[in-house]
Design a protein around this nucleic acid. Sequence first.
DNA 1: TTTTGCACTTACTTATTAGTAAGTATATTT
DNA 2: AAATATACTTACTAATAAGTAAGTGCAAAA
Lengths: 186, 186
Amino acid sequence: MSVTREKILELGENLIRTKGYNAFSYQDISTELGIKNAAVHYYFPSKENLGTSIVKTNIQRFEEMVENMNSRKFGEWQQLEIFLKIYIKSHRENKKCIVGALSPDYFTLNETTKRDLKRMVEMILRWLTDLLDKGRRKKVFSFHNDPESKATIIFSSLVASLQLSAVLDKIDYKGFYQSILDDLKP
Amino acid sequence: MSVTREKILELGENLIRTKGYNAFSYQDISTELGIKNAAVHYYFPSKENLGTSIVKTNIQRFEEMVENMNSRKFGEWQQLEIFLKIYIKSHRENKKCIVGALSPDYFTLNETTKRDLKRMVEMILRWLTDLLDKGRRKKVFSFHNDPESKATIIFSSLVASLQLSAVLDKIDYKGFYQSILDDLKP
DNA sequence: TTTTGCACTTACTTATTAGTAAGTATATTT
DNA sequence: AAATATACTTACTAATAAGTAAGTGCAAAA
């Protein structure tokens, strides 16, 4: 695959995760990469095309992470910690996650990007629900609600924490992530 | 105050809460109200001006709600339920809350709107932290973390739940809100 | 050596955006 | 009756957006 193409994908993702889908333009990308906006269209004919490609890349990354954790037979607690690390890293880089960046603009997205984003959210919630369920049965986690509600609460907290931390320049995110874990301790 | 002005404020808020700040235009407002875009500029010279006015309206609404609950001497549990009802209503109307609609676009906002939004988030979190703290001391609530972390987790969950429910056309939000309450039961 | 394909650039178009300056009809005040 | 203020409209501007058609330089294949 072309280096320029990869750079566009990476920069596009960063722009979505910092400025949002409707606030970034092909000009932003071309200027940064020192090429013309038509060159961006050469690789990604439409913004819709670029948008879906970026979401698909993220889906793939998530799938690879899960596969990797399964093949290495990581425990439930460890898997949750690795998942939380994604958000700690995003936090450090002052970026939202792709779900938190695109979901608020959902109604303005095209059908393909909508479908991919939906698929991604469903995947994450299904995985997290399963993890919580399995973990509780093994007495690794403890919580009162049903696993699906708990998964939604945790995922929602993570998604919005990245958004709010941009507003409140100082947010005690170490304490925040720790208390999500503490909450699940048996 | 002028009726048109009020209509612009209301419609502008709805547009921000459905499409997002960067996706709505003065044209959207003028077309809907059957006036010209210059008429919108007559009341709100700039989009910045309209944006801050909308946030300020929301701050005022929140302050009035808190004042009202205090003067009526509502208990902590009841106050939390009333607060949750804001999100249940938003959910029903397929809208994000103003914080969840603007926070993802924070970096693209102007300084005044940024400041107002920040003020609003701080107000809500301070109020919720206080409520949880007071409620726990009165044995109305029970939770393990410090009140500030718990407040951030709950508020984040609420903010993002409205975003995710747009993506997942079906989300069990009754169960979701109930499990936030259940979680706090002694 | 010619042809083909790749990775772009040049030079546009069309649509939409926020914003403005000047004018107008209607009601209110002087 | 004349002046003024209110609530707009008309008619724009300048900037930026996504997107496109045609051309160019260069390397590899035929």
